[in-house]
């Protein structure tokens, strides 16, 4: 009898969610601080790092991009938001769609990277999160702090997840926390991705993508491409992140 009851849990797997707080779109602002990124380049001398800080440090307000995350309890799609053409120039939108299906435990990311369109298609590999003892507010939600490490890019990742939005989704390639990730900080402020607005609504065609052609690779192959490129770039004394998403 007990075992039958346990079987019933399977049906109730995602039935615990609060009404209305499991489907919608998050609008994020992604800010890149190039001065910090360049200051980490190992091949620069102390004087060159100082020079970068001296010239650009006091005026670096970060380069801003808008990102969106469509989510429900089963899946998510992370993509570029509306562009800002006010500055008098519109750059090309790269192919960048990250889709996660938590129910099927499957991830498909469409990424323009190093001159090619890749389709990174694999099962979900959840990062190993550490849960920390801090809470703060992001976009009106109380969030808890979690940390992980990107061993390939050698980055410390800090995520702030909303305790009362019971969705595993998050921005960039991060997910798998007990709540929606509303803020992500890559390497202590080099890049920040902060939610400006969380919109709860019934999603219709937000998850539909038109057909994208590209080279299909696994997570491991994706990691190898990145690792090789970073290694070559540092050895060739170039900033790898001019060609690669930080």
């Amino acid at each position: 009898m007990k075992k039958v009851a346990i079987l019933l849990f399977l049906v109730s797997f995602f039935a615990f969610c609060q009404e209305g707080k499991q489907e919608g779109v998050v609008h994020y602002e992604r800010t890149t601080f190039w001065v910090n990124i360049m200051s980490r380049l190992t091949y620069l001398s102390a004087e060159e790092k100082d020079r970068i800080k001296l010239t650009w440090g006091s005026t670096d307000e970060g380069w801003k991009q808008k990102m969106t995350l469509a989510f429900n309890e089963n899946q998510s799609l992370y993509a570029y938001g509306e562009e800002n053409t006010e500055q008098g120039w519109s750059g090309r939108k790269e192919t960048f769609f990250l889709t996660k299906n938590f129910a099927a435990e499957h991830s498909t990311d469409y990424i323009d990277m190093l001159g090619k369109t890749y389709i990174v298609d694999d099962t979900l590999h959840t990062p190993t999160w550490k849960i920390l003892n801090q809470i703060k507010e992001v976009a009106g939600y109380i969030c808890m702090k979690a940390e992980t490490v990107d061993t390939v890019k050698n980055q410390k990742i800090t995520a702030w997840f909303a305790q009362d939005i019971p969705v595993m989704a998050g921005p960039e390639r991060y997910f798998g926390l007990p709540g929606l990730i509303l803020e992500l900080d890559i390497n202590e402020g080099d890049v920040t991705i902060v939610a400006s607005k969380v919109e709860f609504k019934k999603l219709t065609n937000e998850f539909n993508l038109k057909k994208i052609k590209g080279k299909k690779i696994s997570d491991a192959e994706y990691t190898k491409i990145i690792a090789d490129f970073i290694k070559d770039s540092i050895k060739g004394e170039r900033n790898p992140y001019w060609g690669l998403r930080y």
Binding site: K130, I131, M144, Q163, L177, P178
Partner: peptide, 22 residues
Amino acid sequence: SQATVMLLLPKDSSLVNFGRAN
């Protein structure tokens, strides 16, 4: 109800499992 419950490893606070109170 709906409180978040997490199981962490004591050595490094890494997340093993999570769920919610009914």
